[in-house]
Design a protein around this nucleic acid. Structure first.
Lengths: 344, 344
DNA sequence: CTGAAAGCGCTAACAC
DNA sequence: GTGTTAGCGCTTTCAG
């Protein structure tokens, strides 16, 4: 049931030229006379000729498509990032194939396998929360496939990375809580092998240390599935609430954890910020209309997406092997709202 | 800088067979002996052979990719719908190329042109708010390209459509407002030629009529860009607030309009629901933690995406021209929360 | 300035 | 049971 498009061959036949002449004319080759070019181009335009990208890809060995692996597009951080990627990809003639891991290692491996079998020109990846072994990426990378990691990155593969100021975001947010007079500050975070978890944890630790507040291990709760499994988050919260002394404030370390924790606290009738203050990483566009308004650490997701794609295209189109890799760290923005302010 | 994958030719050479024998062996042809098949398959597995989908596509004249046109993925309704599409596409061996119109007709045309030039096998579309002329789709459809419309559909092209119970959603929500004792009920809606606008308007009209409440034209405000331009929404709200008698309740008719209106009302210090009750279409996952909790009409976005993709794949893989088209209407769900309840 | 021919990786009709 | 050949649409030497 498909429609038949006009090909170079049709043009050649109609104009009584050879296929190669038409091809060259369309590509504005210097070998072809102006007259012929005009004739061919006019015919092509009138008959709505479109080069078949599949044939071009086969010939050139490039697919002009880029695979993207993220945990979930149903999340403002990632949808904004993808937005940014598409802007750049579109302007460079690439298209983007998006796959979601839903934080599952198994799905990540399957997605990567599927993408690579579809002959993509490159990969942009944010690791799933479950991922510890990155062999599936390493194999492709060793074969020469350009890869850029963003947000959740790994040091095991030498390539460009784009992240946000995770340390600084957590540091500033924690200091802000301290400034509000809180000293019993907890953190609910994602899987403990993720780069963002480590960096955000470190910012939190440093802020506590700089404030002379001892770190309590039991104040840090990990959710191995980054909030995809609500029961996990619920358990983390209940664990914190059961402690003595009980924390007065929480820093939530990822988008989904932020909204889930916020929502669960309300469900458990824990007053925010009266009984528990909260500040968290989130790119939700509605944080300011939450009850109470949610103090958010926002990442420049759109820009991260754009820059990741730029770096990837650069890698793909590089004439010689790239050996110097960039690690870009973009600023986060702390928007202080009522959820983290000391109740009067 | 790309990596070279192993091809059928390499296998043939290594095993001293012809290319076609290898091809047939890999596809389990009955013409090939078990021994040869085993040998070929073992070699292929060991050397991680992957058929080149580009070559297959060129040969078969199918790209195994599907274009999607939506206004914005940074919106829970669409990201959930795309989620659903990807599930089905993935299981059927297709991949999905997503493009965004940002409610602009011009970008819609450009996206469709780009997609069709990339030889896609089919298209899933939700029209942009600006779109009145659908010639760009009609042309492709007439050429035989399978298209499925969802959410924002058009009667001008005879094909499958998947929508939600827009009439019923608006009808129920309006009746709910009436039941709360409101009689001056306004609607803020999207561009007036969109199918969702018409259907939601009709549900609202019917509910008012059934309740014996006269319809006031000035209570209905259109935002031609569906809330993408905040000034438009702001003007709509100010217009309503300036009326005498002033409306007591608003029905917002799309995802973005709902959150924007809600946010702007708060900014303008209009008490919700005290001075203005509000209920709206939205698939936001945070509506229940808004201040006050937002009464939402939720669409089964994920399921709409799944069904759209199923219908499209059916169309693509149909052996004979399809002449009977389905119009699927999926139920919406009204979740009544504080924002639309009569203040005591 | 134009054209013939080879080939990208794969499939399929048709030999042998 | 296996191999030969042509061809999908296009680009690109290399001849003419």
């Amino acid at each position: 049931m498909r429609y038949e498009a006009i090909t170079i061959k049709d043009i050649a036949k109609a104009l009584n030229l050879s296929i190669s002449t038409v091809s060259k004319a369309l590509r504005d080759s210097y070998e072809i006379s102006e007259d012929t070019k005009d004739m061919v181009k006019a015919y092509a335009r009138d008959h709505n000729y479109k080069p078949n990208p599949i044939a071009q890809s086969l010939k050139k060995g490039l697919s002009k498509s880029i695979g993207v692996v993220v945990c979930n597009i149903d999340n403002h951080f990632f949808s904004q990032a993808i937005n940014g990627m598409e802007v750049v990809a579109g302007s460079r003639g690439y298209n983007v194939i998006i796959t979601q891991t839903h934080e599952s290692f198994e799905r990540e491996v399957a997605n990567v396998r599927h993408l690579s079998s579809r002959s993509i020109d490159g990969l942009i990846v944010s690791l799933s929360a479950e991922t510890e072994d990155i062999g599936h990426f390493k194999q492709l990378h060793d074969q020469g496939l350009p890869i850029v990691f963003f947000d959740r990155v790994t040091p095991e593969i030498k390539t460009h990375t784009v992240i946000s100021g995770n340390f600084k975001g957590a540091y500033d947010a924690t200091l802000h809580l301290v400034a509000q007079g809180y000293t019993r500050i907890a953190q609910i975070t994602s899987a403990n092998q993720l780069s963002i978890t480590l960096e955000r944890l470190e910012g939190y630790r440093q802020a506590l240390a700089d404030s002379g507040i001892p770190l309590r291990d039991e104040y840090v709760r990990f959710c191995p599935h980054g909030g995809m499994i609500q029961a996990e988050t619920e358990q983390a919260i209940r664990g914190l609430l059961a402690l003595d002394p009980r924390p007065e404030a929480i820093l939530t370390a990822s988008d989904r954890l932020s909204t889930t924790t916020f929502s669960l606290l309300k469900e458990m009738q824990v007053a925010i910020p009266g009984e528990m203050a909260i500040v968290g990483f989130t790119n939700s566009v509605s944080a300011h209309i939450f009850d109470p308004p949610f103090s958010a650490i926002m990442q420049p997701a759109f820009d991260m997406g754009k820059q990741s794609m730029e770096l990837l295209v650069q890698l793909i189109e590089a004439k010689r092997p790239v050996t110097e890799f960039e690690r870009r760290v973009l600023d986060v923005e702390l928007r202080i709202r009522a959820s983290s302010q000391r109740a009067r």
